[in-house]
């Protein structure tokens, strides 16, 4: 089931399905390892403000607005 990244609970592993944003941000995200088809873990989501993802071995903070533009699928 597709879901916005901003709606995912902490400690969940998700697969990125699609990123709806401009090319500039898209390239920046992919240079950080965030692109369609990758798995990332949500390590912080307070349901307001930015979220923190674990991508490869680094933590990436993402504004809530950006997180809303990323659609994901939960993986177990």
């Amino acid at each position: 089931m597709k879901k916005q990244l901003s709606k995912v609970k902490e400690r969940k592993l998700v697969k990125i399905i699609c990123i709806n944003c401009g090319q500039g941000l898209k390239r920046r995200l992919s240079s950080l390892g965030i692109y369609d088809g990758t798995n990332v873990e949500i390590i912080k989501n307070d349901e307001r403000g930015p979220i923190i993802l674990k991508v490869f071995d680094s933590k990436i903070a993402l504004g809530r607005g950006q997180a809303m533009k990323i659609l994901i699928e939960e993986v177990n």
């Binding site: 941000l25 920046r28 995200l29 950080l32 930015p50 923190i52 680094s58 933590k59 990436i60 903070a61 993402l62 504004g63 607005g65 950006q66």
Partner: peptide, 11 residues
């Protein structure tokens, strides 16, 4: 226009 998005590594 909106301020640039927050996309930042937390080292």
């Amino acid at each position: 226009g909106l301020s640039s998005p927050l996309v930042m590594e937390i080292p």
